[in-house]
């Protein structure tokens, strides 16, 4: 005769580095990174959409590179540097919008805003690697994420504009050319 057994869920004591801060948490092994960010750490800026890597709403930076936080278990993020949309703010306490966020506002690159954190982190990671990206390259990269209300034109323009301003400010500081 078989017995019904109730196994306790497999858990991990994790130490995650998120936006420069270290967090300790006890989480089920099956906890995805995005759920750990939102439910365990209270960082609800990162959104959850499709949970299978298609929509990109949960995009965060893992060691600087954009990645889907729904396709990663929190346990896999140990030893990595995670950055979320909460890290893009500037000024005291990060309460003011950062330059990329301001560019999105100026270019009307969001309407409902659900996909916006994902687009911001995608663009932040991409521009860090390719500060001289052409508009065509930006267009190709933002195809990774889904926006269902704004359309992509204004998103591309916002990212392109932000990249141009960052390049110009590097030049003003005299470290280009």
């Amino acid at each position: 005769m078989s017995e019904i057994t109730h196994q306790p869920p497999d858990q991990q004591l994790l130490s995650l580095s998120v936006n420069g801060e270290r967090h300790e948490l006890l989480a089920e092994s099956r906890r995805t990174l995005v759920d750990a960010l939102r439910h365990d750490l209270g960082l609800t800026g990162t959104h959850v959409g499709c949970e299978h890597g298609i929509c990109g709403a949960c995009t965060v930076l893992v060691d600087g590179a954009p990645a889907r936080a729904c396709l990663m278990f929190a346990a896999q993020a140990e030893g990595r540097e995670i950055r979320t949309v909460e890290a893009l703010g500037e000024g005291p306490g990060g309460r003011e919008l950062g330059d990329l966020q301001r560019a999105f506002t100026e270019h009307h690159a969001l309407q409902c805003g659900f996909c916006t954190p994902g687009f911001l982190m995608l663009a932040e990671g991409f521009l860090a690697e390719r500060p001289d990206a052409t508009k065509e390259e930006i267009r190709e990269v933002v195809a990774a994420n889904l926006c269902r209300c704004t359309g992509y034109q204004t998103i591309v323009e916002a990212i392109d504009d932000c990249a141009a301003r960052r390049r110009a400010s590097v030049c003003e500081e005299g470290s280009c050319g």
Binding site: G53, G56, T59, V62, A65, P66, A67, R68, L71, M72, L122, G125, F126, E140, V141, A143, A144
Partner: peptide
């Protein structure tokens, strides 16, 4: 590699 998913898939 440009045909493999999208950038955030290719980084992982």
């Amino acid at each position: 590699m440009r045909w493999v998913g999208h950038l955030p898939i290719r980084t992982r």
